[in-house]
């Protein structure tokens, strides 16, 4: 053991933090697909239909995202309405 190792604060290479972040993402992703969340494209189409009843918008003006955090999921719907 070198003298440097003896005194350094061993915080610089925290691989556990990397492991945690990678796991958080992959587990959320895999849970998403097994909970049947592949309905998103269908839902996107339906929401677009409803909006189109009132305003004329294009497919690319609507953006739907599902994000999982802690114990809840957030559904984010962004629609650009024409002026």
């Amino acid at each position: 053991m070198s003298l440097m190792q003896l005194f350094r604060t061993r915080k610089e290479d925290n691989s556990a933090a990397i492991a945690k972040e990678r796991l958080r993402i992959i587990v959320a992703h895999e849970r998403g697909s097994r909970n049947g969340r592949d309905f998103l494209p269908d839902m996107e189409r339906d929401i677009l239909e409803v909006i189109r009843k009132y305003v004329e918008v294009q497919q690319e003006c609507i953006d739907i995202k599902l994000d999982s955090q802690d114990d809840c999921s957030i559904l984010e719907v962004n629609v650009q309405l024409p002026n």
Partner: peptide, 18 residues
């Protein structure tokens, strides 16, 4: 190893598996 940041700690594992 947890103290050295080389291993996931209990809270991490609990949080991920819930």
């Amino acid at each position: 190893r947890v103290t050295r940041g080389e291993m996931l700690n209990i809270t991490d594992v609990e949080e991920i598996l819930a």
